[in-house]
Design a protein around this nucleic acid. Sequence first.
DNA 1: ATGAAAGCGCTAACAG
DNA 2: CTGTTAGCGCTTTCAT
Lengths: 348, 348
Amino acid sequence: MIESPSATRRHPTILDVASHAGVSKSTVSNVVRGLPGVSEATRGRVRLAIQELGYRPNVLARQLVQQRTSILGVVVGDLANPFFAEMAKSVERHAAARGYTAMFCNTEGDSQSELAGVETLLEHRVAGIVFLAFSGDSRTMRETLQHQIPAVFVSCGAEWGDVVSVDDEVGGRMGTAHLVDAGHRRIAYLFIPELEDQSDRARWDGYCEALKAAGLGPPVRISWSPPAEHALVDGVDRPLIEVFTGPDRATGVFASNDVAAIALQEFADRVDLRVPGDISIVGFDDVPMAGLARIALTTIAQPRDELARLGIATIADRIERKLKGPPTRTLVDVTLVARRSTAPLRQA
Amino acid sequence: MIESPSATRRHPTILDVASHAGVSKSTVSNVVRGLPGVSEATRGRVRLAIQELGYRPNVLARQLVQQRTSILGVVVGDLANPFFAEMAKSVERHAAARGYTAMFCNTEGDSQSELAGVETLLEHRVAGIVFLAFSGDSRTMRETLQHQIPAVFVSCGAEWGDVVSVDDEVGGRMGTAHLVDAGHRRIAYLFIPELEDQSDRARWDGYCEALKAAGLGPPVRISWSPPAEHALVDGVDRPLIEVFTGPDRATGVFASNDVAAIALQEFADRVDLRVPGDISIVGFDDVPMAGLARIALTTIAQPRDELARLGIATIADRIERKLKGPPTRTLVDVTLVARRSTAPLRQA
DNA sequence: ATGAAAGCGCTAACAG
DNA sequence: CTGTTAGCGCTTTCAT
C-alpha cells in the first residue's frame, strides 16, 4: 500500500486528468475552477478522474500564466517578540480568510536582512507586502515601489504605502500622562533597539508633549540593550541604576514597548528596586504576558486583531483594485490598561 | 522620479535583459546563475543590463521548469505560544541559511486547518514540510506521503517521517524525579489541550515511570483549559482547586509545557496558593518567559536552536538526496533548569 | 458544450 | 563561448 507504484510517480498534471477522463485539458481546467458551461456528465467524469489520480493543481503554473500570485509577503521584526508573534498569527488568519497565503520574513530588526527578505519575496512575485516592522531603509522602499506592488504598513509607518496603525503619539501621551497623574515628576523614556524607528519617534514625541503639558521636563531618554548594566542616558553611557537613585532620580518610566518594560522590571527586581514602590513603569502593546498577575504591567494596549484585519483588508483591496488612489492612513484607538506596575508617587 | 514611466511597466523578463545587452536569453540565464563559461565582457554587459532594467528573476518560472521549489512548508501549532515562536524563528533562519524560504501555516492546534494548510503547501509544491506540531491526523499523513515529499517532525512525532526531537519520556522522568527528590509524594500531571498528542503521551509516560520507580502512585492526570476554574481530573470534571486542598492533595505538579505551568502558577496566585510553598511546579520547554525572576519556573529545557538546525539539515539532505533510506530519528538531550517554582516539601 | 493553440518566464540540452 | 529550441503545467482566447 505504502509502496504503491503511483506513489513514486510524478505529480499528475491536468493532462493526465484530461486523458483519464477522456476530455481536453481546457475542460478539466474549467471544472477545477468551477466555471459554468460544463455538462453535469463531464463534470462528474472529470471530478472522478481528479479523485482517482489524486490530482492537485500546480499553483506555480497557474500563477505564472496569470501573472499574479495569491501570496502575501509578511515582513516581521522579531517573531520571538510576543507582540509580533500575535500579530503574525492574526495576519495569517485574516490573509487565509481572504484567500491569500502568507510568506513570512523575519528581519531580526536588521535592515540588511530586511532587504534580503523583501528581495526574496519579490522574486516570488508576492501579490503584496505587509510590513509589521519597517526599518525605514530607503533602498528597500525603492525596490518595492519600483515594482509597483502594494505594501501596507501595519503598526509601523512609511509615507509611501497604506498605513494601518495606532496613533503612537497619543499612546505615548496617554502612558506618560498616567504617570504624571499619579504624581510623578521625573519620568524617563526607555527605548530598546528592537523597536522600529517610526513608532519609537512618535511614542517619544507623545511622551515629550505630555511632559511639557504638565510643565515637567526635561525629557530623559534611556537607550538600553537588556540585560546590560549600562545604558545610554541622553546619549551618555552610564550605569542604568543611577537613573533611579540619587536626589534627581526618575520615579516613573514610560517604556517604548512591553518587552522593554518587562526587561526593566526584571532589572529592578535584580537590583532591589521596588516596582511600583520605587519606580512606576508603563509599557506599550499589552502583550499577553503583561496580563499575568506576576507581571501586572500597566500598558497601552494595541488592538492587535483589529490592526491585522484592517491591514489585510487594505492590502487585499489594493491588490484587487477595489482601492485606488494615494496611500491611506487608518488609525485605530489605543487604550490604557492600568495594572500594578504603576502607583501614586510616595511622598518623600 | 517616482512616477517614472518604467515604474508602471511590467516586470522586465530575461528576454528584455537579453535584447538590452545584445545577447541571447541563455547567456543571461547563465550569468544570473553564475555558471562558468561566460566571458568577462559579456558578463559585464549582462550585469549592467540587469542593473539598468531592475531585472529580478521570476522564481515561479524557474521552479516550474525545474520541477522543484526552494520553499519549505512549516506547520506550526500556535505562533502565539512562545516555544513555537522561538522555533519558527530558528527554523526560518536555518532554512534561509540553506537557501530555502519558509512558508508558515498556523494550525491553531486544529487538525482541520492543519489539513487545509498542508493542502495549500502542497499546491505550492513546497520542497518539503517541517512539522513543528502534528495532530496525528492520518489523512494529512496520507496526503503528504502520497506525494512523496519529504517531511520532518521537529519536536513532535510520526512514524513515517524523519524525527528530530528531544526524548520527551526522559524529560518527563527528569521533571517528575526532581519533584520526587524534593520529597513530594502526591504529584499530578497537568495537560492543556494545545499540546500535541505524541509529546504529551511520551511526557506522561515518563511521569508515570518516575512515579512507579519511586514507589509512588497512582498517577493523576489533570486536563485543563486555562483560565477555567474546573478541570478534568482523571477524566472527571472537578474544581481545579480541589486537587491542591484536602488531606490527599497534590503538592507537586509536572506540567506538560511551560504555558501550562505558567497558567497554573497564575491560577495558584489567584486562589492564594503559594508556589512553591503549597505546590511545586515543573514545566517543559524553558521558554524565555520562564527565566524571568518573577516567573522563575523550574523546567525541562529543550535546545530549540539545535532542534531547528538539525531539523532543517535533515529535510534539506532529504530533499537534496544526500539522505536516503528509512526515516531517521535524531534525539537531542534535555536539561533540567531548576528555578524557584519548586522547593522541598514542607513537613506537615 | 468542448477542443485546439498560444503563450507565461524560465532552464537545459544541444548546436554552432 | 554563445545561440536555438523544446518544453514545465496551466489559463485563455478563439474555433468548432
